[in-house]
């Protein structure tokens, strides 16, 4: 069983990112880069799946600059055996379609090099920065694989894959052939932490670097010039003004005061 987990390095999602009015860009300066949370769930689910006694390996890949190697290293410390960074000026400014195209080229190229197709290509359902959720489904189209979204667990049964898909009121069990693309939702556990030993081991593992030429990506299919969706501008959402703050010793008095303002405002 060969599993590819696609990850993206994003700014720490516990930090509130707002528009920097002076640059017109998101205020990500100084915010620690982390692996997108949904991608860490994909990796953890893949690792747990293999730990059920299935022989196999996890490869992880990201598109990004030199910097994103640290995120791949983090993945190598918590279950992945191989890591790659897709890096080329050509990829700059790609929209989701250009990204999915390049990832598709890379998945095929690595499969050829490592001697065998990936059975599962796993992505997080969306990233905390773009929150568009397009890359996984588009990657499935690019590769011509089947797709199951909102995955919270997987199991191999009689040679096929049974995937637990979260729904609004419960879950589905979906049978899918392999190869397939899966997108991970949040399972009811946290991903494992690396140990000192696994961190040390990850530090020594090589990380492959792939350029557009390495994966045979065409310049008319990826990067800014091929982008079908163009950003016009970023804007700050309308601000809401804070109203009255009641801070009093006597909580009953404070409550009654608030309550009378509410009745005066006719909101009850």
């Amino acid at each position: 069983m060969k599993i590819m987990v696609c990850i993206k390095q994003v700014p720490d999602d516990s930090v509130k990112i707002e528009l920097d009015e002076s640059t017109g860009k998101p205020s990500v300066e100084g915010v620690e880069p982390i692996v997108n949370a949904f991608d860490t769930y994909a990796l953890e689910m893949a690792a747990r799946f293999l730990e059920t006694g299935i022989e196999g390996e996890i490869t992880t890949i990201t598109m990004g600059d030199e910097n994103s190697k640290s995120s791949i290293k983090n993945c190598l410390a918590v279950g992945a055996s191989h890591g790659y960074v897709l890096h080329d000026d050509l990829f700059e400014g790609s929209d989701a379609q250009g990204t999915a195209y390049a990832l598709g080229c890379a998945v095929r190229k690595i499969a050829r090099d490592e001697g065998g197709d990936f059975d599962i290509v796993f992505c997080g359902i969306e990233t905390s920065d773009e929150t568009s959720g397009q890359t996984g489904p588009m990657l499935a189209e690019s590769l011509g694989y089947s797709l199951v979204t909102n995955v919270i667990a997987l199991e191999k049964k009689d040679g096929v894959l049974h995937v637990k898909q979260e729904t609004e009121d419960g879950y589905n069990i979906v049978e899918t052939p392999m190869p397939c693309v899966l997108t991970a939702a949040r399972p009811n556990y946290d991903p494992r932490y690396p140990t000192i030993k696994s961190k040390m081991a990850a530090r020594k593992m090589p990380i492959g670097e792939l350029s557009a030429a390495d994966i045979g990506a065409r310049s008319d299919k990826t990067g800014e010039s091929a982008s079908l969706v163009k950003t016009i501008e970023l804007a700050a959402p309308p601000k809401r003004k804070a109203g009255i703050k009641i801070n009093e010793e006597d909580i009953e008095e404070a409550s009654l005061k608030a309550f009378s303002i509410m009745t005066d405002a006719n909101v009850l």
Binding site: L19, V229, I232, A235
Partner: peptide, 14 residues
């Protein structure tokens, strides 16, 4: 929305 809605992105499709 970007970043869960703290920034809005205006885009066009070509």
């Amino acid at each position: 929305p970007l970043f869960g809605g703290t920034i809005l992105e205006n885009v066009g499709i070509s």
